[in-house]
Structure formats: structure tokens, C-alpha cells
């Protein structure tokens, strides 16, 4: 974990209530896709955790994509290029892509889709075959389709109302694809559960919980696993399939 001051390079709206922010600073502590940053905001006591969407190591730039749903993310949405943010970086365990097989699936649901982009690229760069399923409520909310395609990663879009792609939740698209030997998922808990139940093989699941500190000190985000109590912020947010206790 490191603390650093980051410069906002851009902060653009990419869908209704969805924003993408590029930040320049010391990204040396960010080592794995699936990790998160914790952002201090003026007037708000607790930092706000956001998963890392992408990292450009050479440029020292990280990207986050967030939904403006509460006071913190609304403050963030109102910020612009040139402003600075105090962030803790390199938080959480992140995805361990080395456990994946040759035929890997990444699944992202809604605001859980952004971290799957860096994850998918890392898998691609490791020589694995990667396919993505991204699920949204409706066509207007669909993000990242072009980015995945541009990165050479086949992507299947699902929408709950059928307005784009396969109608239904992300699990509806599983039938269209060959069974993966390993899966990485991030999204709302019902989605994670459905994916967990639908897939016979191993995988890693990124969980969300309301956090206090984000680095393992306060025990605010503890969960029970088959291997004992874990802190979502520090021992997670990624849990392996075999340890998850619903």
C-alpha cells in the first residue's frame, strides 16, 4: 500500500451516471488486476474504494470507472482535469491469473465490469484464450464493448431487458460459449452466486462490502469463508471458488 497524490487527467461520462477517470501519479504499488484504490474526498470522512479499471505502467496512469450513486461518487463526478486526489493504492489481493487454464472466461456485471478489462488483458498477454461476458440492465448502460473488441478479446453482451445482445443475466450467455476451464468474475452478489452455481470448474470471484479503512485494520468488512474469517478489503476482495461460503 502506498499513499499518493494523483492528478486527474480526464473525467468523462461514458454512460448514464457512469464516469471514467484517468489519474496520473505513482502507480508502483498496483501490481494486480482486481486490486482497488481508496480515495479521500473533501468533506467526506471515509475514503471511497474504487477498483482499478486499467493501468498504463509506462505513462504512470491508472483508470477507474465508477457509477455516481452516492455522495462520494457524486463529488468525484464533479471533479475535472488538473484537480488532485489523495489516494491509497495497491489495496486488496487482486486476481491471481496464474491459476487460470488455457481457456478462460471473464465475467463482469454492471459496475463490476470495469476491473475485468485489465484482468482480461493480463490473461491475453499471458498467452491464454480469453472470452468475456459483460452484463447490464439495458442497452443504454452498456460500456466497454468496444475496448474489449479493440483488445482482441471476444465479448458477449447481455442485457436484462434484451435491448442489446443476449437477453437475460450473464448466465444466459454461458450456454452460447464453450465451457471455460477457469472463470474470473466481478459483479453484484446475486450474479456471483449464479455464476458460481452454473460453472463446474474453478474460478475467482471479486466481492464488494462496505469498508471502513480498506487496508485490514478495522474489521468492518469481514466475511466467513470455508477457510475462516477473511477481510474483504485485505484478504480479498477476490476469493477463490473453493473457499466461498454463501
Amino acid at each position: 500500500m502506498r499513499q499518493g497524490i494523483f492528478y486527474i487527467k480526464e473525467n468523462i461520462q461514458i454512460a448514464p451516471d457512469m464516469y471514467e477517470m484517468a489519474l496520473e501519479g505513482d502507480i508502483g504499488a498496483i501490481t494486480k488486476p482486481g486490486q482497488f484504490v481508496n480515495i479521500a474526498l473533501d468533506g467526506l470522512y471515509l475514503r471511497r474504494p474504487l477498483s482499478v479499471h486499467d493501468v498504463d505502467a509506462a505513462a504512470g496512469v491508472l483508470r477507474v470507472i465508477y457509477k455516481a450513486v452516492g455522495r462520494g461518487t457524486e463529488v468525484l463526478a464533479g471533479m475535472g482535469a488538473g484537480e488532485t486526489l489523495d489516494m491509497l493504492t495497491g489495496l486488496g489481493n487482486g486476481f491471481d491469473i496464474h491459476k487460470a487454464g488455457a481457456n478462460t472466461l471473464v465475467i463482469g456485471g454492471g459496475a463490476g465490469a470495469p476491473p475485468m478489462y485489465w484482468t482480461a488483458k493480463a490473461l491475453r498477454d499471458s498467452g491464454r484464450k480469453v472470452t468475456a461476458i459483460l452484463g447490464f440492465n439495458t442497452a443504454a448502460e452498456v460500456i466497454l464493448q468496444q475496448k474489449f473488441t479493440d483488445a482482441g478479446i471476444p465479448v458477449v453482451i447481455t442485457t436484462a431487458d434484451g435491448s442489446q445482445g443476449t437477453k437475460g443475466f450473464v448466465t444466459a450467455a454461458l450456454a452460447e460459449l464453450p465451457a471455460p476451464d477457469y472463470t474470473f468474475s466481478c459483479g453484484p452478489q446475486p450474479m456471483l452466486r449464479a455464476v458460481y452455481d452454473a460453472l463446474p470448474n474453478g474460478g475467482q470471484f471479486s466481492f464488494e462490502e462496505r469498508m471502513g479503512c480498506g487496508f485490514g485494520a478495522c474489521m468492518g468488512c469481514s466475511c466467513k469463508t470455508k477457510y475462516g474469517t477473511k477481510r474483504i478489503c485485505k484478504d480479498g476482495p477476490v476469493l477463490e471458488k473453493e473457499e466461498i461460503q454463501w
Binding site: 467526506l44 470522512y45 471515509l46 462496505r210 469498508m211 471502513g212 468492518g220 468488512c221
Partner: peptide
């Protein structure tokens, strides 16, 4: 959980 709630100048 949830075990944490933010407040003005505290939690």
C-alpha cells in the same frame, strides 16, 4: 455486515 456507516466528521 454492513458494519460501517459514514457520518459527518466520523463513522
Amino acid at each position: 455486515t454492513p458494519r460501517i456507516a459514514e457520518c459527518t466528521a466520523g463513522l
